[in-house]
């Protein structure tokens, strides 16, 4: 597999590249490769921008800065994801130039580009083993099930980067006799909203005042229910990651 992304890094930055039409052939080739790996796939924009669930890009005219912005930031509320972070600035510029070049591309040229670019990979940030464990999808429950960090995970438990006692579980008793450990979030539209920590993942329950018998301090819940799934060595890696994150 060719690691072409390192090559791209050596190219001039987006802002310095010439306008489409004068774009260096190498730049377009890189753009085509990125498009093939990240944009043409599956139900997205189709090979050569021929349309799929995502709109057709071939045979259309776009402003270059609009393309760069859209690729970088995505279109919130749609299927178009942001590529900032997954692609370097120069790579985003290259793919924008490639999309601009599809304005008057012929079918056969588009098909050729598909075969030519059938290798390579979209690069991803190097992973921190502690972070991977924190969000480890292979375990049904992981730290990220209850803690939000870097825009991932659920904010059921507290912020893990600073002292935070706002999420200390209490005991919630219902008039039905049911009782469970819960993180109380507050009231919303006349209901008390509570995360029920009985099972994993915790359940966000909306309770009417008429349903609640009492909410009292302290609970039977132990943080071990989350931590117990990791070995001591794994916990050390997670803690090293958190220490580093706190220092950021």
């Amino acid at each position: 597999m060719r690691r072409w992304n390192w090559l791209v890094a050596a190219l001039p930055l987006a802002a310095q590249t010439p306008l489409a039409g004068q774009v260096a052939a190498g730049q377009l080739e890189e753009g085509a490769r990125i498009f093939q790996q990240g944009c043409a796939v599956g139900y997205c924009h189709g090979a050569g921008g021929a349309a799929s669930r995502g709109p057709r890009l071939r045979g259309r005219t776009f402003a270059r800065d609009y393309l760069i912005r859209t690729v970088a930031n995505g279109l919130p509320g749609t299927a178009m994801p942001p590529f900032k972070g997954r692609l370097k600035e120069a790579e985003i510029a290259a793919v924008a130039d490639y999309v601009m070049s599809l304005r008057d591309i012929s079918e056969s040229a588009a098909a050729q580009a598909v075969v030519a670019s059938a290798s390579g990979t979209i690069h991803t940030a190097p992973a921190d083993p502690g972070r991977e464990l924190f969000f480890d999808a292979v375990r049904g429950t992981r730290c990220g099930t209850c803690h939000a960090l870097d825009g991932l995970g659920a904010a059921i438990g507290p912020d893990v980067l600073k002292p935070d006692k706002s999420r200390t579980p209490k005991t919630v008793r219902l008039k039905t006799g049911e009782s469970f450990p819960g993180v109380v979030l507050g009231t919303e539209g006349g209901s008390t909203v509570v995360y029920d920590l009985t099972g994993d993942p915790p359940v966000r329950r909306s309770l009417l005042a008429t349903e609640i018998a009492a909410i009292s301090a302290g609970s039977v819940w132990k943080h071990d229910t989350g931590r117990g799934r990791y070995s001591a060595a794994e916990m050390r890696q997670i803690e090293a990651f958190l220490t580093k994150a706190r220092g950021r």
Partner: peptide, 22 residues
């Protein structure tokens, strides 16, 4: 469809088709 397979590297939660089609 015309299918062209390609090697892709899995990146958690990202599309992972291993090819394109028309």
């Amino acid at each position: 469809q015309e299918v062209t397979a390609q090697e892709e590297k899995p990146s958690e939660g990202q599309t992972y088709f291993g090819g394109t089609f028309k």
